[in-house]
Design a protein around this nucleic acid. Sequence first.
DNA 1: ATCCGGCTGC
DNA 2: GCAGCAGGAT
Length: 217
Amino acid sequence: MEIGEVRKALISWGKVNFRQFPWRLTRNPYYILIAEVLLHRTRALQVVPVYERFILRFPDVATLSRAGKEELYNLLHSLGLFWRIEALYHLARIVVRDFSGQIPVEKHLLLSLPGVSDYIAGAVRCFAWDLPEVLMDTNTVRITGRLFGLPVRDSSRRSRKFAELLASLMDRDRPRDFYFALLDLADKICVAKNQPACHQCPVLVWCAHAARNTFQR
DNA sequence: ATCCGGCTGC
DNA sequence: GCAGCAGGAT
């Protein structure tokens, strides 16, 4: 398959169907890190109002590092997953103390932060600095699996095979635009439940899953 | 491999 | 009502 054509189709579709979430209109690594933590197993539309209040109250890491747990709880409790509150509380203090208030670029330093693992470390690097990262989340894994015709399981998120396939698929010159396109495609077309809207899909002709669907009718 | 949590669309 | 959510911790 012409992988360059697939990338081009994805990115041009993504440009038209770009969802303007507030954390997508910035390259500030702190804002992006906060967004990724809040987006953890939480729908984007549910995060928007909480994120905006959070950023307004804590516009930078230094301000956040002076926050009490109680105020953080008041801002974030509606999102559940309360361990994230503890993580952000410590994260801000560590960044101020060890990294002079700058979100680190190096992956191993990002990974040392509480609440940050492979996905969030990669997402911050990708969306803040446009670095080519393999971002394995529910959506990118589902699209990868369908495109290459593999069954998508919960364990696929940690699958090396999936990581290699996504690495081969991703656009290393424009990773930021590529992943925005993938996430928007997963939301609008390549949906998890029901049948995906393959007839509207920009990469329909290269997709193994779509081929099976149309072949079966 | 399993759990987490409030919230929302279905 | 209930399944599932821009994963990470346990």
